[in-house]
């Protein structure tokens, strides 16, 4: 018995054969793992004191409305002391084991299974088969409930997509307007300049956002492709700013290469004469739609028409190859 009071009873402990029931409290498995329990106890106590001081510090920091730094560090030290102390207590000052428990079969015994099948299946069979008509009626009623329940659950959430994806606020005659509500005049932008514009009635609109780029001199009609002969008056071009890949704003215009870059997934679009914003790099699958422009008699830039295709990323009903 004396080594119980010694160094955790570790000395001379021969491995015990499994399953032998003579293992008593003096067996090494029941001793603590620490060689010097008193010393470990002091260390755990120290950790708890550190934790206590940490929490007290948090209280003080909170009271003094201190910075995030002191609040978080004091709280962290509190948790650290408490946690480390508890782990050390469990690891070194409790019986080190190992202990075992046995596993039991997970599945049922044959008898259990048979009894359950009998109770459940045969009882149910009798109950249901006798009232076949009621079963059918109940199923029908439940199915109808399921269908009508889906309506308020789903349908009320939002409108049907219908035309939402096909149209923007741009229409024939819309003034090109800045985010601050100012109409854009033909003299406003120098060659190489860009500006985000909106139709006057949808300023800041996520779908109607359009990038106005001046690529040519006054008087120069920029033709991106033959079918768009008069869409780029006085060196101006306008493209939808909504990326055809994932809908991010195609916000970076590289003046030297005359390219638009989408910062989200790095699709690159060629802009300029004969370059109708065709993607040349990255995942974007389609060109950015172009907004036809004209300069009115007072020199304001206006849309000749709305976009002739849906702006932004694709969707199932979109169809077509443009």
């Amino acid at each position: 018995m004396s080594d119980l009071h010694g160094q955790g009873g570790r000395a001379g402990a021969a491995p015990l054969a499994p399953g032998i029931e003579t293992v008593g409290p003096d067996a090494p498995q029941f001793q603590v793992a620490a060689a010097h329990p008193r010393g470990m106890e002091r260390r755990v106590a120290l950790l708890f004191i550190v934790g206590l001081l940490g929490f007290a510090g948090f209280g003080a920091a909170y009271w003094q409305n201190s910075t995030n730094y002191f609040l978080g560090l004091s709280l962290g030290v509190g948790f650290l002391g408490l946690g480390a102390g508890m782990v050390a207590w469990g690891k070194y000052l409790m019986p080190r084991g190992p202990f075992s428990e046995s596993r039991h079969p997970l599945g049922p015994s044959v008898e259990e299974k048979e009894k359950f099948v009998e109770d459940f299946a045969s009882r149910g069979k009798v109950a249901l088969q006798r009232r076949g008509f009621l079963v059918k009626l109940l199923s029908l009623a439940s199915a109808v409930f399921g269908i009508v329940a889906a309506f308020p659950l789903l349908r009320s959430l939002g409108p049907l997509p219908k035309k939402l994806f096909y149209t923007t606020a741009w229409r024939r005659g819309s003034y090109l307007t800045t985010a601050y509500g100012r109409r854009v005049h033909v003299d406003d932008i120098d060659v190489g300049g860009v500006l985000t514009v909106f139709p006057g009635d949808d300023i800041g609109g996520a779908l109607s956002q359009t990038l106005l780029i001046r690529v040519g001199q006054p008087g120069e009609n920029v033709v991106t492709e033959p079918s768009r002969a008069n869409w780029g008056p006085d060196g101006y071009l306008a493209f939808s700013k909504v990326c055809t890949h994932a809908g991010c704003p195609v916000g970076l215009y590289q003046r030297l290469t005359q390219q638009l870059l989408c910062p989200c997934h790095q699709s690159l679009f060629d802009i300029g004469p004969g370059r109708p914003a065709v993607p040349v790099f990255g995942p974007a699958p389609r060109p950015l739609p172009q907004l036809p422009l004209r300069v009115d008699s007072r020199g304001y830039l206006r849309a000749r028409a709305g976009y002739d295709e849906p702006v932004g990323p694709g969707f199932w009903e979109r169809g077509g190859t443009t």
């Binding site: 293992v23 498995q29 202990f99 075992s100």
Partner: peptide, 14 residues
Amino acid sequence: LEPVPLDGPELVGA
């Protein structure tokens, strides 16, 4: 050490 089957009172005593 070989694992021993867990028995409450012995653990308490130990």
